[in-house]
């Protein structure tokens, strides 16, 4: 436990409150703006709205197509989450607990992907997906997001599996279980917190993906939420109230998902990276 010299300093508390407040203020400002008229936004940009008007949200919802973008983002994010977990979990296990762990170079092939900028692949990727007929397709985008996230996901799952005791594997082996059974029946259930963290990472990563979506989705029908918001910004650029309302609509899902899952998210991040 901390000693008396660690007594909270009032200045510390003030600093924490000020920084947290400054972090949260942009959210509040955007929400207030969403309820203001154009005149109010020009006239008193800092204050609370004089009356809480909802028509900006109506404008944003009808002209912004947000329901549609939301559905697209949800489809992509869910598909990516399921695929990513399915793909990365066995690989992470293979690197952590099977004899592959003695062959570090295979893992370096994946680590290499961790440092690779997406810009290095976007140009051929576009034409490659075009030849598969996967441009302007949510499937195409999902597959590519899964692939680009593979290195990180495998890295994360490897550290989770590595923390599980080897003794369990040995015991199962002595009981005559084959490698597959050990993975499926013994190790996987124990790695549930890791799986959950990976799922949350994958979901938010896919939900927030921008560059690949910008590359691969050029028609309105398949656009995802960040792309839709940037398009909405370029159209509503001077209708500030509606723009703010659109930002709020685009923010809500991310914030809700985060609030619901922040524990496993932060735990996953803390556990995965410190090792």
């Amino acid at each position: 436990m901390r000693t008396a010299s660690h007594r909270r300093h009032p200045a510390l508390l003030v600093a924490v409150i000020v920084i947290t407040g400054a972090t949260l203020y942009p959210f509040a400002w955007v929400v207030f703006g969403a309820f203001k008229s154009q005149q109010e936004i020009f006239g008193s940009p800092l204050l609370l709205p004089q009356e809480w008007r909802w028509d900006n949200f109506a404008t944003a919802w009808t002209t912004g197509n947000f329901g549609h973008y939301f559905a697209n983002s949800m489809m992509v994010a869910l598909a990516v989450t399921v695929l990513e977990v399915a793909v990365a979990c066995p690989a992470g296990y293979a690197f952590a607990k099977t004899r592959l762990r003695n062959h570090a170079w295979v893992f370096y092939v994946y680590l290499f992907g961790l440092t690779l900028p997406v810009q290095a692949i976007i140009i051929p990727l576009f034409y490659q997906l075009q030849s598969y007929g996967l441009v302007n397709s949510r499937t195409g985008l999902s597959l590519v997001i899964v692939a680009t996230a593979v290195p990180f996901a495998v890295f994360l799952m490897r550290s989770f599996f590595r923390d599980l005791p080897d003794a369990m594997v040995e015991a199962a082996r002595i009981d005559g279980a084959n490698e597959w059974k050990i993975f499926w029946r013994v190790m996987l259930p124990m790695a549930t917190p890791g799986l959950l963290a990976l799922a949350v990472f994958s979901f938010l990563g896919a939900w927030n993906e921008f560059l690949l979506a910008l590359l691969l989705l050029t028609d309105d029908a398949s656009r995802t939420l960040p792309l839709g918001l940037v398009r909405f910004q370029s159209e509503m650029t001077a209708n500030y109230g509606a723009l703010f309302a659109g930002i709020v609509l685009a923010m809500i899902p991310s914030v809700l998902v985060y609030v619901a899952l922040q524990r496993s998210f932060i735990r996953g991040l803390s556990a995965g990276s410190v090792k």
Binding site: F126, N136, T218, D219
Partner: peptide
């Protein structure tokens, strides 16, 4: 009918037509 909402300056139209699905 769909609204493209893309402009030349952003390169969107060229990409859309090149994609073969314009």
């Amino acid at each position: 009918y769909s609204t493209l909402g893309v402009n030349f300056e952003g390169g969107g139209i060229q990409t859309l037509l090149r994609s073969g699905s314009g």
